[in-house]
Write a protein that binds this DNA or RNA. Structure first.
Lengths: 110, 110
DNA sequence: TTTAAATATCGTAATATTGCGATAGATTAT
DNA sequence: ATAATCTATCGCAATATTACGATATTTAAA
């Protein structure tokens, strides 16, 4: 059969994987980098910057927003997006915890 | 049209997204957690642990191996896998750099 | 009010991922 | 040599993601 056995895994496992998945496309990394580098957290000058259509960029923005990696504020006719640093800390903490737990259990075979 | 415009993005953007994508499935998080928690870095007692077939688990292991998140050593008839902590550091560094760059450019709208 | 600009969403096509049974390869035990 | 065990890969079906044009929706400007 096909995809999606996510109900069979813990909600922690699903939460972690969903968060990392949101980073799993080059366009979304490009959007994050753009948001880091521009002083004003402009939104769809991305349309002029990325090699993608407006519809596609809007879709990627929604995925980042759903994962709470970015947040948007309506400003007149446009939307101002910026990064949510808390999520970055969450991810760093997750990775750090993985690393530390693994280091405690030293083994031989690799 | 469809998927895959990865050639249009930088190799850095592709490298980062590919690494995070490997974390983007609950089964692969479960595998990583299992490798953290077992003292011996056993491989396919995963088959008894995860709600997936041997073929599917082997496929997920290959993806983790391709992303260099784990490494495997042949031990007789079985394969011993363990985590590659360097990749975890790489990801932490990436996230930390994102965070710091963003903090430098303070802005108003969000 | 009409027009323009920015964004979101719908529908749909192309592609990628996920999952599994069957099968093949390699190593150990009998 | 044969059987048993572990792992990887092939082929295929189910599902998810990616991308875009067309079309709404909302707000600002003319």
């Amino acid at each position: 059969m096909g995809a999606s056995k996510s109900e069979q895994f813990t909600s922690e496992q699903n939460d972690i994987s969903q968060l990392f998945k949101a980073f799993g496309h080059p366009a979304r990394i490009a959007i994050i980098q753009h948001l880091m580098n521009t002083k004003s957290c402009i939104c769809n000058d991305l349309v002029g910057t990325l090699p993608l259509s407006q519809a596609t960029i809007s879709q990627h923005l929604r995925e980042l927003k759903d994962a709470e990696i970015i947040k948007g504020t309506i400003e007149g006719t446009s939307v101002c997006y910026c990064l949510n640093l808390k999520v970055f800390e969450t991810m760093i903490n997750t990775l750090q915890a993985f690393k530390e737990l693994d280091q405690k259990n030293t083994k031989d075979c690799c």
